[in-house]
Structures are given as structure tokens and as C-alpha cells.
Design a protein around this nucleic acid. Structure first.
Lengths: 128, 128
DNA sequence: GACATCCTTGCGTCTCCATGCAAGTTTCAC
DNA sequence: GTGAAACTTGCATGGAGACGCAAGGATGTC
């Protein structure tokens, strides 16, 4: 089978490393706290609200830094962490686009007639 | 700290289970093959091009079905698998939007004016 | 019915990783 | 210098999961 353009894009943007980093519940909680905080957070601040040791939080933050989702800046004794969403948002949107393109090209059943895949099933709905 | 709207959305769309399912290299390969194929693929077809046992592919497909990324349809002896991107694309886009909103609200540097690092900020209503 | 094909599941193994504790490193205060 | 605070890292442990093999359904063919 010839390679498809959508497949190239998909292989580019489907990054198991980044997705796995986001796929851990503890790291997801840390991301949520970083997102909900009023500014950069220290390791101690993040660990204070979590039921795990500070060393665990430190290691999770390293994983998140390694995939570029979090950046850190030394400030005296403290190290202030903040979300760095730009690359991640870019990746997620490109991944979504690539998936959508692939699914539009490969419908469920082999199209028997000129059945256009007209309905774009992008149900936009957000929580309250 | 008070919850922010973007944080609510983020906690809604940051699904560790789905992200973890996508975060395995073998499963990513399976997804790529499903995306690049010309139509629904059987377990045997998918396993044929992978260096793992068919039972492994079968289990990976079950994981992908459980998170709604892949659907299966029995066809005689065979079970035809295909990508089911709609929900995943929806999730990825909402996750990207939520992340972007959070990062716009929490810039790198803390707010200079009248924002002492105390418990001052109570639910700043965001423009977005 | 018997048999083959396609796939799933039970089981044992092995690797990875999340975690906690303790020790080490870096920075600031004195 | 000494000491404290804020993190990081080394080490051990427990659990989850990825894998292969073999046995067990499910379905079609004869």
C-alpha cells in the first residue's frame, strides 16, 4: 500500500513519549495544579497538596520538563515551575488534524457508491 | 485556591487512561497501520507486519477499543478493526483549547501590580 | 458430525516505573 | 565558616503491564 499523506502526519505527531508522560495520574494532577495556580509553583508547593513524597513530585516534574510541557527557573533556593503549553498545544492540534484526515480517508465500510462523507462529526461541546 | 474555568475544562479533557493507551509504541504502530491501511484490518493482518505475537496485538487492540479509539466488527471468522477518531479528535482539540486557555491566564512572570504572592486572587473571570 | 481458521484468554516471566526513605547538592542566612 | 531550607538522586521495593506460549472459544467449510 502506498503511504498516505495523513499517515505521514500521523507518524510525525503521534509521539508516544509525550503521550505517556501525560498518561500518568500523578503527573496529570501536577499539571492540573500548575494550570490552576496563580503563577509558577515550587516543588514544595506542588508536593504540599499531593499524597506523595516531594522526591516523587521532583521526578515527575523532570519527566514533564523532558517532554517540554513544563519549564523551570531557579530563583534562589527555589525552583519555580510553570506550564509551557505552546509545543504541546501545537502537537495536540496537529495530531487531531492528522487523525481526522486519516479517518475521513478510511471510512468504516468500503464506500459502495458516491456516498460522500459529508457529515463532519466534530461535535463541539464544552463542560460548564 | 479557587478553581478556574480553564482548569475545569482541563480536568475534564486530560484523560490519563486514553493518553496512556496512546503512549505505548506498539499501540502507536498499530494505530499507524490502521490509519495507513485501505480499510478495516483483521488481527492477523495487523500482526503480520509487527514483530510480536498475535495475542499481543489482540490485547493491544482490546486496550484501544476500551478507550474508544478503535472499533471492531465481526465478519465471519474475522474481526475487522478500524480507527474511530471522532471522540479522540474531539478530546484532543478540547484538551488543546483548555491548555491554551490556562497558559494564557498563567504567563511566565507573575502579575507585577498589586498581586502579592498571598491568597489575593479569587477567581479572576477570564476573557475567553 | 469433523476439521481448519481466526482470534481470545490463562499463565508464567520479565522489564519498567512509581514510590518512599535516606543521603547528597545547591543556595541563602548568620 | 556553620546551619537551615529547597531540591535532587541513589537505592530498594512493590505493582503494573508487555510479552510469548499454549489452550480454549467462535465461526466457516466439508
Amino acid at each position: 500500500m502506498p503511504p498516505r499523506p495523513c499517515c505521514d502526519a500521523l507518524s510525525t505527531w503521534l509521539e508516544p513519549g509525550t503521550l505517556r508522560a501525560l498518561g500518568d495520574p500523578s503527573r496529570a494532577t501536577i499539571l492540573l495544579r500548575l494550570a490552576g495556580a496563580d503563577g509558577p509553583q515550587t516543588v514544595g508547593q506542588l508536593a504540599a497538596g499531593l499524597p506523595v513524597d516531594m522526591s516523587v513530585v521532583s521526578r515527575h516534574l523532570k519527566v514533564l520538563r523532558d517532554v517540554g510541557v513544563v519549564t523551570a527557573e531557579r530563583r534562589g533556593r527555589e525552583i519555580r515551575h510553570r506550564l509551557d503549553c505552546a509545543d504541546l498545544v501545537h502537537m495536540l492540534r496537529n495530531l487531531a488534524d492528522a487523525l481526522e484526515a486519516c479517518c475521513e480517508l478510511a471510512p468504516a465500510a468500503p464506500v459502495p457508491l458516491a456516498a460522500t462523507t459529508g457529515t463532519t462529526p466534530t461535535t463541539r461541546e464544552d463542560p460548564a
